[in-house]
Design a protein around this nucleic acid. Structure first.
Lengths: 223, 223
DNA sequence: CCCCGGCAAATTGTATACAATCTTTTCCTT
DNA sequence: AAGGAAAAGATTGTATACAATTTGCCGGGG
């Protein structure tokens, strides 16, 4: 029996709370009281406390001994800094893949995501605010590269660097068709560079790609 | 009164346990039972559980719901991968500093650590296995650069990437005088590159510096 | 001999009681 | 009225009791 999806209240609460924080449900600076959360989540303080500690370690909450947890405030500078870190991490991922060459499996996966991107751009749906498919495609592209590196720490850090409210699911809300096209071009060049075993080019273009997203966010984000 | 150093049992246990793990006190794969740890640490299971969860998030322990925690096994490949990640992170740190130029404070700090390195190389103490001062100097050099970036995520990731047993305090045990000299040369070049605002060179040399340490470890580490 | 229910022991997960610390209010002093 | 100790309340930290789940063991059936 495939029971690999077993869980506990503590883990469930952690993910539920994370989602709330990423959605911006709580204003920055808000103090999160354990009893209040426990009541809201319909569990005791024990799993709440474990969740809070984990989320603080993830940088979403701030903690002071004997005083409790509060929602972290992310300045625009914090967010851009996080993008910069992510850019070198994902850049390294591309470099590692390019050095050893694309596996058949990864080539197939990436070509599939590129095709999805192509289709989405043709359909014109992207102008009507239907971002979900694009988001999914984009996530698949970036994650496939990361996983293929087989570098646990790289994957962990790259994932963690996206755990930021408002930004967590991409800044596509501000993308024009032109921007989607540019992102798609980036994806294609990155694929091409890895496919031709050009580590430097793959690394550089991925950094460019990530930092361009940061640039767009910087232009539109009002704090 | 300076009571900024207040703490809790949970935090103390976390750091104590982390230290034990980094020192290799427990064999990889060992299951860490809460009651056993609680007895050994002279506290109840509550702070133990919080510590275990944090250390699992740090990658030092593995966790399975309803089954508990066990000591993670680090293969040589895992360790080298972690070095590669750290190299690009610290490389980015140097790049950022070099781009904006050295602050007077950082220049002073780094020159001080370089002087310490010079003195240690002259004294010949390094051959007698007195690594503590070198370790301290090295840590000060790397940390000063990271902190000056004011990039929280970068600092957090770079610190976290060193949380690996056996390696956590440098692989100086295998350094010959020649190796210490080379490391010192690297430090000087990195400083020079940042001082002359040469981001590319600073980044590259820091990566070289970190990966050279990985190379030495790879040669000597028996698993 | 193997397998596999199922009971018993051990271990983790959760709730709750109690202790320690922090925060707020009160009320006295100046 | 301002300041500040001291008590009352609220909140976090820790221990422990209880529940749920897993693990080990035993015996019966194939």
């Amino acid at each position: 029996m495939t029971d690999a999806l077993k869980s506990t209240r503590s883990l469930n609460v952690t993910e539920a709370l994370r989602e709330l924080l990423l959605q911006g449900e709580f204003d920055p600076g808000t103090r999160l009281q354990e009893t209040w959360l426990a009541e809201r989540m319909q569990v005791s303080r024990t799993p709440i406390r474990e969740a809070l500690r984990v989320l603080a370690k993830d940088g979403l909450l701030e903690y002071a001994p004997n005083k409790g947890y509060s929602v972290r405030r992310f300045s625009l500078e914090d967010i851009v800094s996080a993008f910069r870190v992510r850019s070198v991490l994902e850049g390294l991922g591309c470099r590692l893949i390019a050095e050893r060459g694309l596996s058949e499996a990864l080539r197939t996966t990436l070509q599939s995501t590129l095709q999805s991107g192509e289709n989405l751009l043709q359909s014109g749906q992207l102008e009507r605010g239907e971002f979900d498919e694009w988001r999914e495609m984009n996530k698949a592209f970036h994650l496939a590269i990361l996983l293929e590196t087989h570098n646990d720490l790289l994957v962990r850090f790259a994932k963690q660097s996206r755990n930021i409210p408002i930004v967590f699911n991409g800044s596509f809300r501000w993308y024009s068709l032109r921007e989607f096209q540019r992102a798609h071009d980036h994806h294609q060049v990155i694929f091409d560079a890895m496919n031709q075993q050009q580590p430097e080019r793959a690394d550089f273009m991925m950094q460019e790609h990530v930092m361009h997203a940061a640039h767009i966010l910087k232009k539109n984000y009002k704090d």
